[in-house]
């Protein structure tokens, strides 16, 4: 609880959280305005998919920066040394710090999308389950990139390293990961498709998108070939939770193993 309170106070004083939130709010409002001509019944789904496709450019990089700089700040201000006492290891510090980060970042996002739903009610017929899935997808997106950011913050020794690493991670998941898979695509056979599928859904952006689109019922998987069935060998929600588990664990372990307690600059 102390960590949450501390994180909250630090973020209120800082600009990063407010900048991130204001971007999310502005993007959501602008997508709502652009979608005002859509039909009452189905416009809701079109809007949410468009919003997700737009917001996906911002949330990962912002969460990477928030997570990384939040950890780095502890090093910079020497509070990390104070917090890690004989009783507290780096792993327990990181765990508590991560929980604090989640609550401070995810809380306001959750509150905003609660208000956003009220705005949507004036324009569209709301599918509550679909909206819940959308919000959950956004929270998962923020969660996984916050944890990756925490790992970057733990490993980095300077702000320059943080900026570079964050942009690289964002670039990797946005472009490189799928580009590598696209290059392998002609060689994917029925025997290898399951492995390829795991590679595809290792990208959080793809796993979350698939969960969102199938969960809301907008993406149909009718008349699937054997190849497609083999590719979608489990439910999209399982792919999502597997992806979350993998990246949270990897980020956490990397942060613990390679953490550097000192900071330069």
């Amino acid at each position: 609880m102390h960590y949450i309170w501390k994180e909250w106070k630090e973020n209120i004083r800082g600009k990063g959280l407010w900048l991130s939130l204001s971007i999310i709010v502005l993007v959501s409002i602008s997508v709502l305005i652009r979608s005002s001509a859509l039909s009452f019944d189905k416009g809701f789904y079109v809007l949410l998919i468009n919003l997700f496709d737009t917001i996906i450019y911002f949330i990962p990089i912002l969460c990477l920066f928030i997570g990384a700089f939040s950890i780095f700040q502890e090093k910079e201000q020497k509070t990390l040394i104070m917090l890690i006492t004989k009783k507290e290891k780096y792993s327990s510090f990181l765990f508590k710090k991560s929980l604090a980060l989640y609550s401070v970042v995810l809380g306001p996002i959750l509150i905003w999308f609660f208000f956003y739903q009220i705005l949507l009610k004036f324009k569209f017929s709301i599918d509550v389950k679909g909206y819940f899935i959308f919000v959950f997808a956004i929270l998962c997106l923020a969660l996984v990139f916050l944890q990756m950011g925490s790992a970057i913050g733990s490993i980095s020794r300077s702000r320059m390293q943080i900026v570079g690493a964050s942009i690289f991670v964002w670039f990797y998941f946005f472009f490189l990961h799928d580009f590598i898979l696209l290059s392998y695509l002609p060689n994917v056979t029925f025997e290898k498709v399951k492995l390829f599928s795991m590679g595809y859904f290792l990208n959080p952006l793809e796993a979350i998108r698939m969960y969102l689109e199938t969960g809301m019922g907008v993406y149909s998987f009718g008349h699937m070939s054997r190849m497609l069935e083999a590719f979608m060998w489990t439910k999209p929600s399982i792919f999502l939770f597997g992806n979350l588990f993998f990246w949270l664990l990897v980020s956490f372990l990397l942060a613990i193993i390679f953490n550097r307690k000192e900071a330069f600059e």
């Binding site: 946005f174 472009f175 696209l182 994917v188 498709v193 793809e206 497609l228 590719f231």
Partner: peptide
């Protein structure tokens, strides 16, 4: 060619990586 040969290509059509693939 990819769309003809490999039906899984459609899963990448929303990915920004498509632009890089086309450029390369």
């Amino acid at each position: 060619q990819l769309l003809e040969d490999q039906e899984l290509t459609t899963f990448f059509l929303k990915s920004p990586a498509i632009n890089i693939y086309e450029m390369v």
